[in-house]
Amino acid sequence: MLVIDRATYDAIVAHAKRDHPDEACGIVAGPEGSDRPERFVPMVNAAGSPTFYEFDSTELLALYKEMWDNDEEPVVIYHSHTATEAYPSRTDIGLASEPGAHYVLVSTAQTFSDEHGNNEGPVEFRSYRIVDGEVTEEEVSVVDSLPAPTG
């Protein structure tokens, strides 16, 4: 199960809406081994595409170095689908390289229409584990604030 606080959840949804019709992407970092998504980091989609996303390689290195310095890891890796449902595509599955991360997929497909622009439809927000090509959907629990760390 992914436990995420309301403010981070809203920030991911807002990023997806802002970048629509291009795919939005980013991570939420947290202390290594904690499974706590604490630090929201929106990234630029270097592909600038409605059907593809990729972190810029220089920014990717800077992000990981920052996480290593902070003893953090990517707890959540998110991106949006802008015309299809919030389910990992074959490409998403093939390229998933963080077996410990929650892969969050947000779909803005119902949120906008050609005729009416922003029509305030629901944004789909779903989370998955992707390990060795196996996709497992998990429950998403949105809380006011994350519970105090244990241990």
Partner: peptide
């Protein structure tokens, strides 16, 4: 030397 898989995907 640092090796990092791309963080990428797409619909």
């Amino acid at each position: 030397v640092v090796v990092l898989p791309a963080v990428a995907g797409g619909a």
